[in-house]
Amino acid sequence: MSPTVGEKNLSVLLSTLDPTVDSEVFVFLTTKKSIDDLPLKSLQPQMLFQESEGTTIITTKALAESHGYDDYVFTCKKITISVHSSLEAVGMTAAIASEFTNHGIASNVVGAYFHDHIFVPLGTEDKALQVLKDMMVKAKSTSFEMV
């Protein structure tokens, strides 16, 4: 079975964002431990990314603390964009970032195979969710154009 490629049309993407906020509180942390030495099963990372300085891990605050990682940063909420966006789609992340910038909302976006996940500072998730819902309404009523 060949995998689905996801949606590429910007108007369709923006009109079907259907964002949801995860109930968990997430954090970003880094470690110099090798992937083989990390307790991945119990740490349940949302993302791992290897950089020359160390491995970035996104996990819940509770799991980070239970594993002794108390030097985490960016306490945040995860908003999942439910539309299956193509990894080759152009403009969706930029459109969201632009709207978040206009509303003073910081964000870190992780593009996964099926969905995009936006991590926003704890306490800004309701405002971010409203911005995304407003974008959906606008995209449904007009052809969205990047400015």
Rank of each mutant, 00 (worst) to 15 (best):
T101D: 10
V73W: 07
V110S: 04
L63M: 09
V73D: 13
L87R: 13
Y69H: 00
K77N: 12
V83L: 08
D70F: 14
A89Q: 13
T60S: 14
V73S: 13
E65I: 04
S86C: 10
T60R: 01
L87W: 07
L87G: 15
H103R: 15
E88M: 02
A112K: 04
G91I: 02
K61N: 05
G104P: 01
I81F: 07
H103A: 15
D71V: 00
T93W: 04
A94F: 13
I96K: 03
A95E: 12
G104F: 00
V73A: 12
S66K: 14
A97F: 03
N108I: 02
A112R: 02
Y72S: 05
I105Q: 07
Y69F: 15
A97N: 11
T93C: 11
N108K: 07
C76Q: 08
E99Y: 09
G111A: 15
T101F: 13
H84I: 06
F100E: 06
I96L: 10
Y113H: 10
T60M: 03
Y72G: 06
F74C: 01
H84M: 11
G111C: 15
S86Y: 10
I105R: 02
M92D: 09
H67T: 05
I96Y: 04
A94E: 12
H67S: 06
A62T: 11
G104S: 07
T80L: 09
A89V: 09
C76P: 04
L87H: 10
Y113D: 06
A94K: 10
T93V: 14
T80W: 05
A106V: 09
K78M: 15
S85V: 14
A62L: 11
N102P: 03
T75N: 07
S82Q: 11
V109L: 06
A64F: 00
I96V: 15
A64Y: 01
M92P: 12
F74M: 03
T75Q: 14
H67G: 04
K78F: 06
T93A: 15
A94L: 14
G91W: 07
V73Y: 08
E99C: 08
S82G: 11
V109W: 00
I96H: 02
I81R: 07
V109Y: 01
E88R: 00
I96Q: 04
I81D: 05
C76G: 06
F100L: 04
L87K: 13
S66A: 14
A94Y: 12
K78D: 11
T75Y: 08
A95T: 11
K78S: 11
I79N: 10
G91M: 04
F74T: 00
F74H: 03
I79P: 08
V110W: 01
Y72L: 04
D70H: 14
A106D: 14
H103N: 15
E65R: 03
Y69Q: 00
A62H: 06
S98Y: 11
S82W: 10
V110K: 01
T101Q: 13
S86T: 05
H67V: 04
K77A: 15
H103M: 13
K78I: 05
I79K: 08
T60G: 03
T101P: 04
